Computed example of a mutant assay.
Amino acid sequence: MGVVYLAALLLSLGCMLLLDWRFRLFFWRDALSAMVVTVVGLVFFLVWDVAGIANGIFFRGDGAIATGVVLAPELPIEEPVFLLFLVVCTMVIYTGAARVLSRLGEQRRAKGDGS
């Protein structure tokens, strides 16, 4: 049971990357830019977590579904994986929404020109 959370995070990350691949939204649209955004986002959130841990705000919970492996005090191995998932998920949703809104705008303009 100790790897359920980590496995769920990796499975969810894989699903986000499959959506990304299918619709060419983030990594499969511009890999270099996507990598830079992902690394910057991950580092930002890790620094945020470390600051929260240092100030006694964030604590590691003892869950039966977690591995129990910690990278630093109060920083379980699942946290960077979750933060990676968070960044990738956010960017896939953002780029997907931007594409949908762009297409809706094009359709509105096309209808307006035809009237």
Rank of each mutant, 00 (worst) to 15 (best):
R60A: 15
V43F: 09
I57E: 05
M35V: 07
F27I: 06
A64P: 14
V47C: 05
F45I: 00
L25K: 04
A31H: 08
F27P: 08
V43A: 15
G63M: 12
F44V: 03
F59Q: 15
I57Q: 04
F59A: 14
F27Q: 09
F27D: 06
D49Y: 04
F58H: 07
G63R: 07
I53E: 07
A51W: 01
A31P: 09
V47N: 01
I65R: 10
A54D: 08
A51R: 02
A54K: 08
G52A: 03
W28Q: 04
G56F: 12
W48P: 00
V37F: 07
F44D: 01
G63L: 13
M35D: 11
T38N: 09
F58P: 04
I53M: 13
G52I: 03
A51C: 06
F58A: 06
L42P: 02
V40P: 03
F44E: 02
F45K: 00
L32I: 06
D49E: 13
S33N: 13
A31T: 06
G61C: 08
V43M: 08
G61W: 09
N55D: 12
F44G: 01
M35L: 13
G41S: 04
V50A: 05
V37H: 10
V50Q: 07
G41M: 02
R60T: 05
D62Y: 11
V50D: 01
F58M: 06
T38I: 09
W28H: 11
F58E: 06
W48G: 00
N55I: 13
A34K: 05
D49Q: 06
V36P: 07
V37Q: 12
A51D: 00
F26R: 00
T38G: 10
V50F: 08
S33A: 14
G52W: 03
A54S: 11
V39F: 14
V36K: 15
G41E: 00
I65S: 10
G56E: 10
F26S: 01
V40C: 12
L42G: 05
R60W: 06
I53V: 13
G63K: 05
G63N: 15
G56W: 12
F58T: 05
S33T: 11
F26P: 01
G61H: 08
F26L: 02
L46P: 00
V36W: 14
G56M: 14
W28R: 05
R29H: 10
L25N: 02
W28A: 03
F59M: 15
I57D: 05
I65H: 11
W48Y: 02
F26G: 01
G63P: 08
D30E: 14
G52R: 01
A64F: 09
V40R: 08
D62V: 09
G52C: 02
V36Y: 11
A64T: 06
V40W: 11
I57G: 02
V50E: 03
V43C: 09
A64V: 10
V43D: 06
W48C: 01
G41C: 02
A51N: 03
D62E: 12
G41K: 00
N55K: 10
F27K: 10
G52E: 04
F27N: 12
